[in-house]
Design a protein around this nucleic acid. Structure first.
Lengths: 183, 183
DNA sequence: TTTCAAATCGTCTGAAACAGATGATTGGAA
DNA sequence: TTCCAATCATCTGTTTCAGACGATTTGAAA
């Protein structure tokens, strides 16, 4: 077994191919785009270079078209599958990271104009409402199709988080309205 | 005014120096470590290289010790302050990113053993409970000192998010217990 | 049936982010 | 006074990243 350290990107690629079956990089890009991509961004260039690496490590197999687009279709190997499975079985000690520019701006509220805080809060409210609507629509459309309902489980976490953020920014907007961030 | 694109890291550095006053890279590392570092990780090496860049751009000024540690103490310039202020005033269209390895593993639940899901959920419950305790302690200790209470505002968001995650994983653990992730 | 604009698909580049090793300085306990 | 642990700073090689670029394909209008 190799001693190379695989990244989260590696496992997402492995997992996607294991779940979907044989896939091209472009397939991955699209599949990730309407699933894990909602909460963790993977630049599409990675989805071309990473499978190449995984193939060299023997975790994927590749089949190349020899003309036109020259698509490379990747399949997971037994080694790849067992690497993925042991990662899934492994405990995760790392806490999540919430990369939220709005939160950073809010952290520096002392340096901002009170009106900036108000607008920030209002923008966030709108954004989270929109996202909630989007998630609910997904849940409605696909949540009951048992074929993919297990892929919808994380939507529940996404929704909880969105509602939490919405609650926070709503209450913050009220506090700002009350003048809590003046002088 | 320069046309260089500043990153979030840049603004965090500027903001920290603006809020704390003259700071060394090590000061930044520590200050970030017990504030924004809780939700967005900035590798400390960046906090040495980034101020250097900002100094070259004229957004910071530097004063160097000429012996011993050779600490470089950075101060924000007027240009730096106005760059920071206009960033704070600017709307933020980007949605947050939630980099959560546990969520990724859960997404691939179809490929995992039912017991893995149970343990994943239990670990997450523990982790979020601990984090909540940590945040509540911070709130209790510093929330009332008006000198810094405005720097504690984001703690509220952190807590809301932690509670949301805790709710989700708690309910997920029950579903797993009921055998929802078998076969 | 040609044509041409939009959508799809793939690669490349240079810059920034990153983990983690290394090394120097310092304070204070033994 | 020595010596260990904490503090502080830099360096290295790798990975991530945004976004530009270019090639192929589709299909609708001409």
């Amino acid at each position: 077994m190799s001693t190379v350290r695989l990244s989260t990107t590696s496992y997402v690629v492995l997992g996607m191919i294991a779940m979907r079956g044989p896939s091209t990089s472009y397939d991955l890009k699209r599949a990730i785009g309407h699933s894990v991509g909602y909460f963790w961004h993977f630049p599409h260039a990675q989805l071309y270079s990473e499978p190449k690496r995984l193939e060299q490590l023997g975790l994927l197999e590749v089949e190349e078209e020899d003309d036109g687009r020259r698509r490379r279709t990747y399949t997971i190997t037994d080694t790849g599958l067992s690497a993925l499975r042991s990662w899934l079985a492994e405990p995760t000690d790392q806490h999540y990271e919430l990369r939220d520019i709005a939160e950073i701006k809010l952290f520096f509220n002392e340096l901002a104009e009170p009106d900036d805080i108000k607008r920030l809060a209002q923008d966030q409210i709108k954004q989270h409402q929109d996202r909630i609507a989007e998630y609910e629509q997904m849940q409605e459309r696909f949540g009951h199709e048992s074929a993919i309902s297990r892929r919808m489980v994380t939507l529940g976490l996404g929704l909880e988080m969105e509602h939490a953020a919405l609650r926070f920014w709503t209450s913050l907007a009220e506090r700002a309205e009350r003048g809590e961030f003046e002088a």
